[in-house]
């Protein structure tokens, strides 16, 4: 899957998980940029990604995620 396609799917998941009407997301987006992206909603986002893409993150991988770009790269690796 291309990074662009993953980003589009991630954006949809983030809109649902953060309960917002719309969201501008780029690979550079971090939790700092989105008020609703806190440590608890991050957990729900992680589990939503796991369900959507059919794999499980390791704890260390979750802790290392700093941006949407990190998430895209990890999803690419896990779904290859």
């Amino acid at each position: 899957m291309t990074p662009e396609a993953i980003l589009a799917q991630l954006r949809e998941l983030m809109i649902d998980v953060f309960d917002v009407d719309d969201l501008e997301v780029t690979p550079a987006t971090t939790a700092e940029d989105i008020e609703e992206w806190d440590s608890l909603s991050h957990v729900r986002l992680i589990v939503a990604v796991e369900r959507k893409f059919g794999f499980r993150f390791k704890t260390s991988e979750i802790e290392d995620l700093k941006s949407v770009g990190d998430l895209i790269r990890l999803i690419q690796e896990k779904t290859q």
């Binding site: 608890l40 957990v43 729900r44 992680i46 589990v47 796991e50 499980r56 979750i62």
Partner: peptide, 10 residues
């Protein structure tokens, strides 16, 4: 609590 959240949502 975050660890428990992860288990709960999974």
């Amino acid at each position: 609590l975050r660890d428990e959240e992860l288990f709960f949502h999974r």
